[in-house]
Design a protein around this nucleic acid. Structure first.
Lengths: 310, 310
DNA sequence: GTTATCCATTGGATTTGCTAATGGTTTGGA
DNA sequence: TCCAAACCATTAGCAAATCCAATGGATAAC
């Protein structure tokens, strides 16, 4: 019988490209991975790896094995989930990946609910941007992810992950507080202002740029940072404008002016988990709590989705 | 990640009932099995086994795990088979279970073909009666079985095994050679003769008894042996009659009188393999050779299916 | 009541698996 | 062309997992 642990290494090699990366990802030494794969090769009696330059390439036979391995790993996870579900016992660890603004808005409330209602549940939270968070959930580095999707900007669709909507988060133009009534009533009016945006490659950046171009200009992006708190500071101090989601105002009064956008755009915030794990009671509970917290926010916690100053 | 080797032990325990049997079947010590299962229990953190009297019973959670394990083991086997199929390299070992009369009739010819055409293929043959052979193929003790089915006597249908017909083997009444023309022209005429039959529990025995009862009498079974060569001896020496399949005459001239039965009954001889393994080149080759040999026999090797003396 | 069967545990031997270090090869850049 | 960095294979030594034999306690069968 083939050793599943070794098959898993083979699969990781396919995904990550080099032995070194596999070793790093699974916290082994590269030597160990190399040895285990050699043993796997001996076990099946077929060449699985071939040196190509300084990397290893999988032979077609190895690809076939990997294909089946995926199914096997899923079924293993499913087995554990089904078993736990039959006990409906909320315990164990959920590794949760969340992007920054959601951390600030949702996690404080959610974590106290976890502590109160599920004392046996351990939730490990890591901040990670949606793009890589989804990928790392797929590779089993996380169990659950809170991710976002901007309109017209499809999130990566990984077949083995499911998706559950959490909230719809309104996007507004944030302007220095002194300016209300001074003329910025739409994006077009912000053409001559300096902008602060998230780094290139993020969905937020892409959408913000597109919004400016639709309004007929190329934004003058003078500040670039992934930290939305910095965005707020820059805007509140009169140095920039930006498009900000309402979620950043959870639990506080907006310190900037907020201008509605033309078509009332929203980003969608959702959770994803591997389908094979979605029935783990721990994950079901996690999602239930997050949904509750999100709903509370949506229904008028001060400053949330409801329209703020303008 | 759950350890598949341990899950397999759990599954074997479900199938075989006691730790001792599992250990014997997989050639471990009972101690080892016990320890591994305890570790599995610790690993999942759920009670899997409960002592009931002096045996172990699986908890419902364990049953769930076993259910998934079946799928996993199948997929593991399928992975190896698919990989080997992509190379169409006939090598490795096929563990073949065959019942006695088929051993004598088919194996000599088949084995020389194997040796000639597939030098890298190792065929291990074990004699085993169809009933247990099918079961043991299901439990992975064998890879391929040659089994039989008598009319009106369904062979065990195991969903994970496939079935491929090999030959249809005529059944005739075998009587002492001195008697032709002396009056035994049907089963009914053999009412007063002593019978030799296979042991109770075999399909052959069941069918023979039924045949006598349909003819209106209870046979006087004076000799009971699974060895068809003994049947032949007893009949040839004038001490018994029996129902014998034509296959026993492959390669030799019948030494007894053969009487056709009313509805020209046949037993079906077929091969079975686990579906997950059926595409292994080794098994495909094995079956192809067996089919060839069977076809040759069917087409007039002296004494075979074609009608013999009477 | 006695015996046989079965499972758990313990201690000791063996095997397996991991790490750290070394060496060879390839790639990209000076 | 040569050098440095990245990557993989191998080796030797060590740690951990695994296995077996023996022992003991419990249950079922006789």
């Amino acid at each position: 019988m083939l050793d599943v642990r070794r098959l898993r290494l083979l699969r990781e090699l396919q995904i990550r490209g080099t032995l070194a990366e596999v070793a790093a990802a699974l916290s082994y030494s590269p030597s160990s991975v190399s040895q285990q794969l050699s043993l796997l090769e001996k076990e099946v009696g077929v060449e699985l790896l071939r040196k190509t330059g300084r990397r290893l390439r999988l032979t077609p036979q190895a690809e076939i094995l990997v294909e089946h391995t995926t199914g096997i790993l899923n079924q293993l996870e499913l087995a554990e989930a089904d078993m736990a579900a039959s006990l409906s016992l909320v315990s164990g660890t959920v590794r949760l990946a969340v992007f920054q603004s959601a951390v600030l808005a949702l996690l404080p409330a959610a974590l106290s609910v976890f502590g109160r209602e599920y004392p046996d549940l351990r939730v490990e939270v890591t901040q990670r941007e949606p793009e890589s968070a989804l990928f790392e959930t797929w590779t089993r580095d996380f169990d659950l992810v809170i991710a976002e999707q901007y309109p017209g900007h499809a999130a990566p669709r990984l077949a083995e992950l499911d998706r559950e909507e959490l909230v719809s988060d309104a996007l507004r133009l944030a302007v220095p507080p002194a300016t209300p009534g001074q003329g910025i009533r739409s994006i077009a009016d912000a053409e001559r202002m300096p902008w602060v945006m998230e780094p290139r490659g993020t969905a937020s950046r892409h959408w913000s740029e597109q919004a400016c171009r639709r309004a007929g200009f190329e934004p003058d992006v003078r500040f670039e940072t992934p930290d939305l708190q910095t965005h707020i500071q820059l805007i509140a101090s009169g140095n920039a404008v930006a498009i900000l989601p309402d979620l950043v105002w959870v639990g506080r009064t907006p310190t900037v002016g907020l201008v509605d956008l033309d078509d009332d755009p929203h980003r969608s915030i959702f959770t994803s988990a591997r389908r094979a794990a979605r029935n783990r009671p721990a994950i079901l509970a996690c999602r239930a709590v997050l949904a509750r917290v999100a709903a509370e926010i949506d229904n008028g916690v001060p400053g949330a989705s409801s329209r703020a100053a303008s």
